[in-house]
Design a protein around this nucleic acid. Structure first.
Lengths: 157, 157
DNA sequence: TTGTTATTGAAAACCATTTCCATTAATAGA
DNA sequence: TCTATTAATGGAAATGGTTTTCAATAACAA
């Protein structure tokens, strides 16, 4: 199932079915929350958002679904070093909103930046290709993150 | 305490003292293990290596010491996504052995690569400077990691 | 040598995530 | 539409890396 032929309402029907997954209420609800929401939600954040409307969807299901969505490439699993995973909607194919993260180690605020992205992407592709060949890796993902202190936290210190 | 004026046997004495830390057996033992060892040790790895010689050093102390060393910039705390932190000795100043990591998501093998490092470092510095100014961050760290499947794991599939 | 206080070890607590297992429900086929 | 199959679910319990607690110990300054 080549990633990326998705767009429009309900495109995920095919995505699920095509991979032998069933389309359930929970899965749709979670996808919807991630698609609409501010970014970087934790499993519990998602649970909280979904619970009022779907009180019968448990946290376990959230975790399981997030794994599925993540393995389908529909969402990204992120780690900002605060001990809980965060998830963000993978905005369609072709990296339309490709960005990386700038994390404040003081207050855990996260800034999505797109500055220098073109240069980054170019270097990443080059590196990916080089490394892949040299070490015989089939590379399919990368992380770039910057850590520091935001204005507020820098002052506090 | 400006990082980086360290070299030679026992340079850490000053590093510790200068920051109000005491120099203890445990701290030296842990530093030594990290300095000598293959890279990417987990807290428990370190515990196992130290235990035969120092059976009275507990895992708790390992964790506490790793925090201290990490906050002093003497070691790096790494996350390869397998649920446990790894640590690696910060090889002196000036990024003498600056490298990044290529992680196999199949078997968790980690390759340290230095290919394209110069280009990377240049871009990183540029980005760091740009982001720092634009978002008023005092950036002091970054991560770059590639994930994929190594030859073996790629075949298995 | 002595007093102060950072450091320690062991056990318990923490807490995000996973596993278990009996129940439910999505889907394919009749 | 109805039915059988089996993936998906939820609640409770387990997991496991890391942190906290607290009384005992030991590094260091004087």
């Amino acid at each position: 199932m080549p990633r990326g032929e998705c767009r429009g309402q309900g495109w995920w029907h095919g995505k699920f079915r095509g991979c032998g997954y069933r389309l359930t209420l929970g899965r749709e609800a979670i996808l919807e929350v991630l698609a609409k929401s501010e970014k970087h939600l934790s499993a519990e954040d998602i649970y909280m958002k979904i619970h009022p409307r779907h009180p019968n969807i448990g946290l376990t299901t959230i975790y399981r679904t997030l794994d599925v969505l993540s393995s389908l490439g529909m969402i990204y699993k992120l780690d900002f070093g605060d001990g809980r995973a965060r998830y963000e909607f993978a905005e369609g194919p072709k990296g339309a909103h490709h960005h990386h993260h700038l994390v404040c180690t003081g207050c855990n605020r996260v800034v999505d930046y797109t500055d220098f992205i073109d240069e980054e992407v170019e270097l990443l592709q080059q590196t990916e290709k080089g490394l892949g060949k040299k070490y015989n890796f089939k590379i399919n993902n990368h992380i770039i993150q910057f850590y520091g202190l935001c204005e507020k936290c820098s002052g506090k210190k």
